[in-house]
Each structure stands twice: as structure tokens, then as C-alpha cells.
Design a protein around this nucleic acid. Structure first.
Lengths: 148, 148
DNA sequence: GTAAATACTTGTAAAATGCAAGTATTAATT
DNA sequence: AATTAATACTTGCATTTTACAAGTATTTAC
């Protein structure tokens, strides 16, 4: 089957991941990576730097500087862990939570729009398929860095 | 439904698009963007610069320099169009074709591995779902830059 | 109690980015 | 036919991003 490659390639592009600029929320420019970082911090309980960087597959030194920039923009807070003082725990500030929620809203609207072209059955099938695909990608030994 | 956002977010990450380094083929380092450019040139008939840049959603000035780098690496050729001398037509060199084919191979292997966790019915369903999703994304007015 | 490992930061140099302003060519207007 | 506007692409910046190597600080292992 020749199709899958074309599909994935297009899909990857559809996500808009090639262009760096993500969005502007309440006057602050949010890059794509910042949005991913905010998303992940938001749904974890005071994760360490390592944890988020690893989850996103970003080099830890690059991540360190990205976090510095997010802190400068007052979207993220860094607290020394009381248990292990090498570790810094990350959390969203009030403004960070607001920005993360705004991005969620944008994405939800987008997804609503995308799914509006499907009937309920198709919607359900697509969702299950994406789940299955995600799981399979995770199972694959080549996962996440087929190109790395 | 809360799930779609999480699914898409994860899926986007699974594609490994956050990390820039793509692969090394016959001694040449290929960045993620280069691989996308090679892919698109490869499946179009001597497209113009504009066309590829637009399709990939890359700023034309950035693209211009990326092409320069690909030409320096002897992967891409730029020919002045005889019809409109403002236009440059892009094509892959022999080496460029080889590199593009190598990337195809890597991706195909990856996809084979991913689909090996599914039975034929699931495989078929997932493929159809991705197709439907792609089409719906294209139909959406917000397409391609929900964050732009 | 010293060595090794871990978590994170900084120096630096290379690459990528995008706006503004440029060149060259073609199309549109008068 | 001559000027203007539009298009296709390039270059000059100044900024941002990147990742390797080398650093600090703390904790774990022996």
C-alpha cells in the first residue's frame, strides 16, 4: 500500500506543525513549542523539567531556555522540589492557565469545525481509529523518532 | 467530548515533528523541513518555488534559503522557467531522488511496524479514517492554521 | 567518604526565522 | 507605447532556536 505515507505526510502538515507561530493570546505571542509545553504542564501535577522535556522529545538544554522564556512571560512557575533539590517542579501561573485554556478553546473550535463534516458514526470511527493509531505508534519500537 | 484535543495533541507529537533532526542519509544530515521539501518536489512535476512554499506553509524567504541549502547539498536543482522568467522550477537531482527514496523507505518501515499491531480490518478502518480526517481538515475554513 | 550519576544551566557557534527592502520580469492601465 | 502595478524570488538584517560541550549543584552508590 502506497497511500499511508502520503496520508501521514499530509496529516502531519495539516496539524500546522511546520509553521512556528501558533497564536497570539492577550497580547503575548505563543510559539508552537510553548503551546505544547503549556499543554503538558497543565495536565500533569507539578512535573519536573526532565519529565516534560522527555515527553515532548525536546533536548533538555533547549527546554531549559524555553522554560526561562515562559517564566519571563509569567506563564510558568518553577519551584525547587523539597524532596530533591536538583529538581525543579513546574506549574502554570494564573495567566498561564488562562493562556492554556484559550489555546484549548481555539483547538476545540477547530476540532468542532473539522468534525462537523462527519456524521456521528464517522466521528466515532475516526476517534477510535486515532486512538488505535496512537497506541500502535507507542507500541512501535521505532516510536516517536522514526527519523531519529 | 474532551478526548479529541488530547488525541490530536498526542498524535501530533507522535509524528516526531517537534524535534528538528530528521535523519542522516549517505552522510548528509536531512532536517525535517528538508525532508518535507524533498517529498513535495518529488511528487510534483517541476513545481515553482512559490508552489512548494505555499503547500508547506513556509515563509517564502525562509524557503528560498532552504532551497539554497538543498542546492548546495546537490539534492535539488533550480531551473529558470522558459515561460515566465521570474519563476524557478524545482526538481530533484539523482542524489536528491535517492535521498527522498531513502526517507520513503524509513517511513514505510515505520508504518509497517505501526500497522503490524492491527488486523486487516483495523488497518483498513484506520486508513479510511485518516483519509476522512484529512479531507475534513481541508474543508474546514480554519484549515491548516487553527493557531494562525 | 569518595566516585558516579542525576537534574538542571550556561557558553558558544551554527542554523532558522520573518520582516523590510531589494531586483527582475510580467501584466494591467491609460 | 509608456508608466504603473503586480508577481516571483533574493538579500540584509536582527532575533530566536537549536544542540553540543562543559559547567554547577545535589543525590546515590560503593
Amino acid at each position: 500500500m502506497e497511500e499511508p505515507r502520503e496520508l501521514l505526510q499530509t496529516l502531519a502538515r495539516q496539524f500546522g506543525l511546520l509553521n512556528k507561530t501558533c497564536c497570539q493570546i492577550s497580547g503575548v505571542d505563543i510559539s508552537l513549542i510553548h503551546s505544547h509545553i503549556l499543554y503538558e504542564i497543565g495536565r500533569q501535577d507539578t512535573p519536573s523539567m526532565q519529565k516534560i522535556a522527555e515527553r515532548l522529545g525536546i533536548d533538555i538544554t533547549t527546554f531549559s531556555r524555553q522554560i526561562q522564556s515562559l517564566i519571563k512571560n509569567k506563564l510558568v512557575k518553577k519551584t525547587a522540589s523539597p524532596e530533591d533539590r536538583r529538581v525543579y517542579l513546574l506549574s502554570l501561573t494564573t495567566e498561564g492557565k488562562f493562556v492554556a485554556a484559550s489555546i484549548d478553546k481555539i483547538m476545540d473550535d477547530y476540532l468542532d469545525d473539522v468534525f462537523s463534516f462527519m456524521n456521528d458514526f464517522e466521528k466515532e470511527t475516526v476517534m477510535r481509529s486515532l486512538q488505535l493509531l496512537n497506541m500502535s505508534m507507542q507500541k512501535s519500537k521505532m516510536c516517536c523518532t522514526p527519523m531519529g
